[in-house]
Design a protein around this nucleic acid. Structure first.
Lengths: 262, 262
DNA sequence: CAGGTCGTGAAAATCCTGTGAACAGCAGGC
DNA sequence: GCCTGCTGTTCACAGGATTTTCACGACCTG
């Protein structure tokens, strides 16, 4: 909540706590970047605090954090202003003075969609192929050997594994792992996929987990595959016609190379 | 929209059309299961129409169609009523008289929020003839064999299949698949239709899916092909295609039946 | 039959991804 | 304070895959 009306803030905070939410408050503008780390469900804001920068600020927040419920609550306003705000990406526009209970109900309505999708089963380990992914340790293991993933690497792997079998677009991945919208041309996802593949390869060489879908993104699906490499090394030129018994779908569009660079 | 205020309905319908939406209207309650078939983005409703059944009705609609944006617009109301409504599953509650433009903006905001969180609805596969089109994989299958479509190819096929039976103009197709207006003389759509037809033919030779409408565009409609063969009568018997990979079909000239513009 | 429209194949241009490495931010140890 | 190791980000390049463009001939309509 970004507002200077301390009385309103106090009352709302109390009600929110009762309803099982936590309300954090600022009396001045918060840089959009910092909002990311807060992992909010919804943001209630009085644009008076922002002064002239109100519109650009709201627009930026709305585009950077598309999943965030964004509600304005302010004094007098014209229809044109409200329409502009809503078209810009606001989810609701309330007029002061507003009843705390209704404010809360509207914030909940706005955040409902967002919270509904969240998993309750956090902490339950996932297994995939030789992998065991343990959210309680922020780590993945093959047997008892950890992959030694960093925080982001783990979160990326966990997200992919949760959505096993689905092709996830880069933008979606970035949105969910990094928490805000991906800038055009950002290669972070690719780089982290490479790091993950390296560490996966190191501990579980005979399986392939992350598959590339050209022009779209990645798909997580553990597949035992390791025979190919030996065959290639033996006969670099002529390849025997591949047995068509392979029943796995979507093979040729997958670009993952196990080709070595040295 | 469910409301008896015909003036408001008329005005709103006009504005909605301008904004690119279609508004359908009823002056009485619509059974919730009839709403399903309408595939609405949002429902605007004045509970006065519903009488005593308002609360149960709203609750039922909200739980039956969680993806539907549900907005109430009515006369006097208490805070308690609004809170009850919002907690029940409403997305917004407006007070009459309300400005048409703001109403529209709020409906758009609500619809936007819902389409944003919608993941499973987009993942629903379409089937057509022997085809199964799976958005979760950005791929189409015949049985378990993928067509190996590229991204653009898939999006084109998906668009056409979504609008099954409708004749789509090239400009409209381009606009929706490429995301911007088609330049005069651009043949991209034609080229991609050819690629699609090739890949469809390869995996599902006995069906025809994409039909040309001369001077207009294309129509997607799966049809078991038999008519064409009668007209040709050149090949009395169908040679069994080689089981491996028959990529040489240069000899047979394929005729696509076209339809007049009327 | 003329003029515009469409199917086709291939070349050209563009885009995408894997990869290695440089760079910045940060925390801890000396 | 300074160095060091670890993370995460950004950059540039190369090899492919994909998309666009082009030319040509066949086709449809009036």
């Amino acid at each position: 909540m970004i507002d200077t009306d301390s009385g309103f803030v106090t009352v709302l905070a109390k009600r929110a706590e009762v309803a099982g939410w936590h309300l954090s408050h600022s009396a001045g503008p918060v840089p959009p970047r910092d909002l990311v780390a807060l992992k909010l469900n919804a943001l209630l804001i009085d644009p008076v605090v922002l002064g002239d920068e109100a519109w650009p600020y709201l627009e930026r927040v709305a585009s950077l954090l598309p999943e965030l419920g964004l509600v304005v609550c302010t004094g007098r306003s014209t229809v044109a202003q409200r329409v502009r705000g809503l078209r810009l990406g606001l989810d609701d526009w309330m007029t002061k003075p507003c009843h705390p209970e209704e404010t809360l109900a509207r914030l909940e309505a706005v955040a409902r969609r967002h919270t509904r999708g969240r998993r309750e089963a956090e902490g339950a380990p996932l297994s995939a192929g030789e992998l065991e992914i343990r959210p309680d340790r922020f780590q993945a293991f093959v047997g008892s050997e950890p992959l030694e993933l960093t925080r982001r690497e783990f979160e990326l792997l966990y997200l992919l594994a949760e959505e096993r079998g689905q092709v996830l677009e880069r933008e979606k991945i970035y949105q969910r792992v990094w928490g805000y919208a991906m800038a055009h041309g950002d290669r972070s996802v690719d780089v982290f996929v490479r790091k993950l593949r390296q560490k996966l390869e190191k501990r579980s060489p005979s399986w392939s987990y992350i598959h590339t879908h050209f022009g779209i993104g990645y798909r997580f699906e553990p597949e035992p595959a390791g025979i190919v490499e030996e065959e290639l090394r033996a006969a670099p030129e002529v390849t025997t016609p591949p047995a068509e018994a392979a029943q796995d779908d979507s093979s040729s569009q997958i670009v993952h190379k196990t080709f070595t660079a040295g």
